[in-house]
Design a protein around this nucleic acid. Structure first.
Lengths: 208, 208
DNA sequence: TCGGTATCTGAATAGTGTTCAGATTATGGG
DNA sequence: CCCATAATCTGAACACTATTCAGATACCGA
């Protein structure tokens, strides 16, 4: 369906007929509106209007409004992973110092994403998007990056062998929780750096 | 008009009249409906109908639907703190063992609450309720309980002085994040006990 | 008992998600 | 090249929603 759309894209759009890929245009518009209004308060009709299409046209690409929102979530997870990958790429090196910086920057990128766009963060983790594979944290791009960072920390002697086992779990949950609690106003923004300090210290616990 | 007519009207009206506890009745009904439908998909009219009152009656107690939802959130936070207090009360004693059990049970209660009622958890931390005092984690009931637990752990030598400083921050964020990630299907339910193990080990890091 | 006030109703308005018959456009087969 | 067919989108309709407001009702104090 979307493949034929891409192929057809070389033919230029007619006035009333929508060029190539309406599905992506709808998601982009939805991202824009969710950022302003929040995942609740999103209007399917407003999305259609922003793209310049009738409300019923949406139903050729998404069975209902919730599926459209879920599609937005899929895109956002990809965007976040992409942003994290770029952040890591800017800190090369195999030293302990570089490994530490990468680890912290991975968490910061996650948090900055949440803090800059609270409504998009709420869409991702507020039960709006259906996760297909339950508990598929392995194979996840962001999870693999975290694993790599933790391995580097272990190999450079920054963290203990005993804590390495809990590395992904503790880091991911703490950063996720801090993002939520700060975004929702339960904790002040400044504590995030403290949390990174605490995590780094915590990961040295136990026998080497 | 006849006497019987007047009497009947009075009787019917009295049954429909709520006498000031309508506010609480509305919130209770809203809790019930949110549990089933989620914080989005809540219908103000359905809440009113469940209580047996007209939709416009709601507006005498809440300026709009969002405020009603926010009121639900306030109640849920109180309920959660109450549940945690009860959980702690069932584990008395000043030993290291008791302190550990209390610490873990505090986290478990938080997680069980989230896992048993995902939609209520989403309402609490999904941007649906307006937090009045930004970053007012001190003075919070649940926070005080956590502080007490951590002090007990320190005094019984279970955790290090160096990590005590990060105790509330690391514990709260990790448990919060784990609850979210498990509820939303990014992590399997079983890892929560692993997280408690990891937290307990982590809190021993650094100098005593 | 009366008057005022808090409480609730009924109707109306504007906006929502969703469905569906049909109009429009592009594509593939002859 | 043309035409049938499929894909794409529109317009109108339906049931439902939040919200407002004038007015009816029940309660309470004097």
């Amino acid at each position: 369906m979307s493949i034929t759309n891409v192929v057809r894209r070389k033919r230029v759009a007619r006035e009333n007929y929508h060029h190539g890929d309406l599905e992506a245009a709808l998601i982009d518009a939805a991202v824009d509106l969710v950022r302003q209004t929040g995942p609740d308060h999103l209007s399917l009709r407003a999305v259609a209007e922003q793209v310049g299409v009738s409300p019923s046209a949406v139903y050729h690409y998404f069975p209902d409004k919730d599926s459209l929102i879920s599609g937005v979530g899929d895109k956002l997870f990809i965007d976040l992973a992409h942003m994290q990958r770029e952040a890591l790429a800017q800190i090369p090196g195999v030293s302990a110092r570089a490994a530490k910086l990468r680890y912290r920057e991975l968490g910061r990128t996650y948090f900055r994403w949440a803090n800059k766009e609270p409504n998009l963060f709420r869409l991702m983790f507020g039960g709006f998007c259906k996760i297909e594979k339950q508990g598929d944290h392995q194979g996840n791009d962001a999870f693999l990056m975290l694993t790599q960072c933790l391995d580097d920390l272990l190999n450079t002697g920054v963290i203990s062998k005993a804590m390495r086992k809990y590395g992904e779990l503790l880091s991911w949950t703490a950063v996720q929780g801090a993002s939520t609690l700060i975004v929702e106003g339960h904790l002040p923004e400044e504590v995030f750096e403290d949390l990174l300090d605490g995590l780094e210290l915590a990961m040295r616990a136990g026998s080497k």
